[in-house]
């Protein structure tokens, strides 16, 4: 099984870059990736789950993760044990990638990784310290909270305005500066 998994790793890595980060609470943005086509996989549903972890129990040693989009979204339960690597990356509400193998008809996690976020072309990342110093210095930029309105309403960063994922067309004209050279900084609920 390990060997099979190794073969898939390039595909898994490629696939992981196709997925953007920053989870949302409304719908999962992820899919259960199909294994590579070059070999005939034993399990047609694939050997990696990607999606939002909806539960983890250390007592029962299992992780529940939502995979698939929209109507096809479903929750799967994956067991883990002391040999599973990176179990700490599976936390409720966070996006994870879980590599697994089948044992006695049940999926067992072999490796758990945080789901990587992919930045659109031309966009750079910013870290907490830099953002904090810019906010404190009242630097000239527009801070956008990209989470759903309810989450924004509950709590947001100082001075942040809300433009949810599907609201760009509706809200951007009134919130974003006319000058397209001005700095915009976006954030949401975190990638992992």
């Amino acid at each position: 099984m390990k060997k099979t998994l190794t073969k898939f790793i390039p595909f898994i890595i490629m696939a992981s870059f196709l997925v953007t980060g920053c989870n949302q609470d409304t719908s999962s943005t992820t899919t259960a990736t199909k294994p590579a086509m070059s070999t005939k996989a034993k399990k047609p549903e694939g050997m990696v789950y990607k999606g939002k972890v909806v539960g983890k129990s250390n007592k029962a040693k299992s992780i529940s993760i939502v995979v698939g989009k929209g109507d096809k979204a479903k929750t799967v339960m994956v067991k883990f044990d002391d040999k599973t690597k990176g179990v700490e990356h599976a936390a409720k509400g966070h996006a994870s990638i879980i590599y697994y193998e089948m044992r006695d008809g049940q999926p067992w996690a072999t490796v758990v990784k945080p789901k990587l976020a992919k930045l659109p072309k031309g966009v750079t990342a910013i870290e907490t310290a830099e953002l904090k110093s810019m906010i404190d210095a009242k630097a000239d930029f527009t801070l956008i909270d990209a989470r759903p309105g309810k989450r924004y309403a509950a709590a947001h960063l100082p001075g942040a305005k809300n433009i949810g994922t599907k609201e760009y067309k509706k809200k951007a004209p009134s919130i974003l500066p006319k000058d397209k050279n001005k700095l915009l900084i976006m954030y949401c609920g975190g990638p992992t």
Binding site: T20, G21, C22, N23, Q24, T29, A117, K118, L119, P120, K121, G122, V123, T124, A125, I126, E127, T128, L131, I144, A146, R147, I163, G164, T165, Y168, A172, L176, K180, N181, K182, L183, L184, I185, M186, Y187, C188, G190, P191
Partner: peptide, 21 residues
């Protein structure tokens, strides 16, 4: 999510977009 909204802003012509991942 932030990366999607950032993508929309880039498409819209904004040249200076950063994401606090």
């Amino acid at each position: 999510m932030s990366t999607k909204v950032a993508g929309s802003a880039i498409k819209d012509g904004y040249k200076n977009v950063r994401v606090y991942l």
